[in-house]
Design a protein around this nucleic acid. Structure first.
Length: 591
RNA sequence: GAUCCCGUAGCUCAACCGGAUAGAGCAACUGCCUUCUAAGCAGUAGGUUGCAGGUUCGAGUCCUGCCGGGAUCGCCA
C-alpha cells in the first residue's frame, strides 16, 4: 500500500518525464503550509539551473502538464507559490477513493519494504550474574520496536539478545566462589564425574557476589590476576568452571525473561558471547593465515586503521596477553556465526553510542577478514544515555544503579495512582485494574523512550511520562480506547462503519493524515528512528480528537456520512493499533 | 591533546534529500462538559535555532573557525 503523497508522486513523475525534467525531483510531500495547500512538490527549483529556466516558469509548465494528464480529476487546484513551489489540493473524491482502498488493504496500510531479506538485530545485551538495570531499557525497547517494524514490512527479522556471558566478570565471580568455597566439587581439577544439576548459587547470590568481587579485583592486583586466570581457564574449557558457568547463565536468564516479559520485549535467539567460543580459534587461524593478525606486546591484534583516517584507530585485540578473549573477539566470531547460520543482508546493533569506536573496529576487522561481505549492511544504531530529571545519568536516590524491575514497579505504582485520581477503571475487578495499570505503565515508559531521537541523550522523568495529558503513551491509549468504545456504542445502536467515504470539509484533514501511514513507517525504518512513528501516532490522535470534537457521529442523520465517519473512526483505531504494535505498545480493551 | 556527538520557546523535544511564516507537549493565560470517555477540544502568549563568517535562488540543516556540554581514545563490557 502506497501513501496518498506517493500516489501523487506517480503523477508528477509522469509530468516531469514528459517535460524532460529529472524525475528524481518529482517527489510530492505533505505540505508544510496547511493553509495554502495539502501537498507540495519542490522539484521545479532544483530543476531550474540545468534547464536554464526560471523555476516559477518550470512550475507553471509542470502544472499545465499535470492538468493535461489528470483525466481522472485528481486535483481541485494547482498553483505556484513563492520561488517555485507547486502547491496541490486534491478533490475529496480522490481522497475518498484512496481511503476505500486503504480500508480494504490486507496489509492494514503497512508498506511492503522487503521480500523476505534476513536482518538480524542485536539488542538487550543483558549481562549474566548482574541484575538488569536502566541501561538495558533503551536497547531493549528500541531494538524490539525495530524488529517489529522490520518483521511487519516483509523482512525476516531475527532478534538476538546477545548475552554478556564470557568476559572478565565471569572469572571474577568464579574466583570469588573458589576463595569462599574451595571445597566445592567444581574447583576440584581432578574430578571427572557429573556435576550437580542444581545451581549452588541463586540470582540473589550472584547479584551480591559480583560487585564485591569486582571491587576486590580493582583494589588488589593479585586478586585481579586470579580472576584473569579464572577467565582464561573458563574460556579454555576447564570443566568445573564451565559447569558453574552454565548455572550462572541458567539462573540469570530466568531473571532476565521476567524483565523482558514485563516489558513485552521479544527475542528469537538467546545466544551469547560464549555461544561462539568454538568459532574463535579457527577464525583467528584464518586471520593469521591472511596475514592480518600480528603479535603486539604479548597480545594478538588485528590492525584496522586506514591510510586516510582522521581519528586514531587502535587495533582490535583478539587475544589478551593472558590468552583470554575480549568482547571484540566474541563480537567478530558472532559475525562469523551469523553469516554462516543466517546469511543476513543487514545486521543492526542497538547499543549505547559510547560503543561507537568499538563497533567501528569490529566492522572494519570483519570487512578486512572477509567475514562480512561489503554487500551486507553493518549498522551501529547507537543511542544516547538516559539521564535523570537533573540532567545527570539516571540513578536511585541513594546514588546507585536502579534495577529495571524496580523501575517498572515504580511506573506501575504511578499508573495506579493516576488511574485512581482520574476515577478510571473503577468498576473493574482488582485483577483487571492491576492489568491496566501495568499496560499503562509500560506504554508510558516505552513511548517516553521511543519518542526521543535515538542518538540524543534523554531525560527520564517518571512523573512527566505517566502524566495522563499531552504527548504520552497513556494519552494514545486513551484515544484508542475511546474510539473503540464509540464503535461499540455505535454497534449497539445498529450502526456499522461504511465501506466507502464521504469527506466534507470537516473530515478531510483527518483523512489526509490517515493517508500518511505508509510513508511514516518507511521513514521510521530508513534511519532506524522509531520516534518518527511516535510523532505520527500523536499527530493522528490529535487530528482524531479534533474531528471528534467538531463532528457528532452517532447523531448524524445522513446515513452515508455517518457510515463514512464511523469508517474514519475504525481506520484511525486500526492505524493506532498498528503503530502501537510496531512500537511494542499494547492497548487495553477498556479503561 | 585528538576524534565523535549534542547546543532550537522558561522546561522536555520535533523539523523527511537544503525548501515558504522553525513546529509539538509541559508550565502560563482565555474560552468550551444537560449528546459519542474533558486523560479532551478551540484559542492567546512565548524564538537573533550557542557565536562569527562562508557556500546558493533558498541554511536550524552543508563548509570553516570559535564558545559551551557530553563521550571515546589497547589488554573492562
Amino acid at each position: 500500500m502506497d501513501s496518498l503523497a506517493s500516489k501523487l508522486t506517480t503523477l508528477t513523475e509522469q509530468a516531469f518525464s514528459a517535460l524532460g525534467l529529472p524525475v528524481e525531483h518529482a517527489r510530492v510531500a505533505v505540505s508544510g503550509q496547511a493553509e495554502s495547500a495539502q501537498f507540495q512538490c519542490n522539484g521545479a527549483m532544483p530543476s531550474a539551473k540545468a534547464a536554464k529556466k526560471n523555476p516559477r516558469q518550470i512550475a507553471e509548465e509542470v502544472i499545465a502538464k499535470l492538468q493535461e494528464l489528470d483525466s481522472e480529476g485528481v486535483f481541485a487546484s494547482l498553483s505556484v507559490g513563492g520561488p517555485g513551489f507547486i502547491n496541490m489540493v486534491v478533490k475529496p473524491s480522490f481522497a475518498e477513493a484512496y481511503l476505500r482502498d486503504l480500508l480494504a488493504d490486507a496489509g492494514q496500510g503497512v508498506p511492503v519494504l522487503s521480500s523476505g531479506e534476513t536482518v538480524m538485530l542485536d539488542y538487550g545485551g543483558p549481562n549474566v550474574a548482574k541484575a538488569m538495570h536502566v541501561g538495558h531499557l533503551r536497547s531493549s525497547i528500541i531494538g524490539d520496536a525495530l524488529r517489529r517494524m522490520m518483521l511487519a514490512t516483509g523482512y525476516k527479522a531475527i532478534g538476538d539478545v546477545h548475552l554478556g556471558d564470557w568476559g572478565t566478570p565471569m572469572g571474577q565471580i568464579i574466583s570469588e566462589l573458589e576463595l569462599r568455597h574451595p571445597d566445592w566439587v567444581y574447583f576440584d581439577a581432578r574430578f571427572s564425574g557429573a556435576y550437580p544439576k542444581d545451581s549452588p548459587v541463586s540470582m540473589a547470590d550472584l547479584e551480591e557476589i559480583y560487585p564485591l568481587a569486582s571491587k576486590a579485583c580493582k583494589e588488589d592486583e593479585a586478586r585481579a590476576d586470579k580472576a584473569r586466570q579464572a577467565t582464561a581457564d573458563l574460556q579454555n574449557g576447564r570443566a568445573g568452571y564451565r559447569a558453574l558457568w552454565h548455572h550462572f547463565v541458567y539462573v540469570s536468564v530466568t531473571g532476565m525473561k521476567k524483565n523482558f516479559d514485563a516489558l513485552g520485549v521479544h527475542f528469537d535467539l538467546w545466544k551469547g558471547e560464549g555461544s561462539v567460543h568454538e568459532l574463535i580459534a579457527p577464525m583467528v587461524e584464518k586471520l593469521k593465515a591472511q596475514g592480518l593478525a600480528r603479535e603486539d606486546d604479548g597480545a594478538l591484534v588485528i590492525d584496522v586503521a586506514f591510510e586516510g583516517d582522521k581519528k586514531e584507530m587502535p587495533p582490535l585485540i583478539l587475544y589478551k596477553r593472558d590468552g583470554a578473549v575480549m568482547y571484540g573477539t566474541t563480537d567478530l566470531a558472532t559475525l562469523v556465526d551469523r553469516m554462516q547460520e543466517n546469511k543476513p543482508s543487514k545486521i543492526i546493533y542497538v547499543v549505547d553510542q559510547r560503543q561507537g569506536l568499538h563497533f567501528e573496529q569490529v566492522f572494519r576487522a570483519a570487512r578486512k577478514g572477509g567475514i562480512v561481505p561489503e554487500s551486507a549492511e553493518l549498522t551501529h544504531a547507537g543511542f544516547g544515555t538516559m539521564n535523570g530529571p537533573d540532567g545527570k545519568p539516571f540513578k536511585t536516590r541513594a546514588g546507585g544503579v536502579m534495577k529495571l524491575e524496580d523501575l517498572i514497579a515504580m511506573g506501575v505504582e504511578k499508573a495506579r495512582e493516576r488511574l485512581k485520581e482520574a476515577k478510571l477503571a473503577e468498576d473493574m475487578s482488582a485483577a483487571e485494574k492491576e492489568d491496566i495499570a501495568h499496560t499503562v505503565a509500560i506504554a508510558a515508559i516505552k513511548f517516553a523512550d521511543l519518542q526521543n531521537n535515538r542518538v540524543a541523550d534523554y531525560v527520564f522523568d517518571l512523573d512527566r511520562m505517566t502524566a495522563f495529558e499531552g504527548k504520552t503513551g497513556p494519552y494514545l491509549l486513551y484515544q484508542a480506547v475511546r474510539i473503540n468504545s464509540l464503535l461499540k456504542k455505535a454497534a449497539e445502536q445498529g450502526f456499522t462503519p461504511g465501506e466507502t467515504f464521504v469527506l466534507p470539509e470537516t473530515d478531510i484533514s483527518l483523512a489526509l493524515i490517515l493517508g500518511e501511514l505508509p510513508d511514516q513507517i518507511a521513514l521510521a525504518l530508513k534511519n532506524y528512528t522509531p520516534h518518527v512513528l511516535c510523532d505520527y501516532a500523536f499527530k493522528l490522535a490529535q487530528a482524531f480528537s479534533s474531528f471528534y470534537g467538531s463532528c457528532h457521529i452517532l447523531s448524524e442523520p445522513d446515513e452515508a456520512l455517518r457510515g463514512s465517519r464511523l469508517a474514519l473512526c475504525a481506520l484511525t483505531a486500526r492505524h493506532l493499533r498498528v503503530i502501537l504494535s510496531l512500537l511494542g505498545i499494547a492497548i487495553p480493551e477498556r479503561m
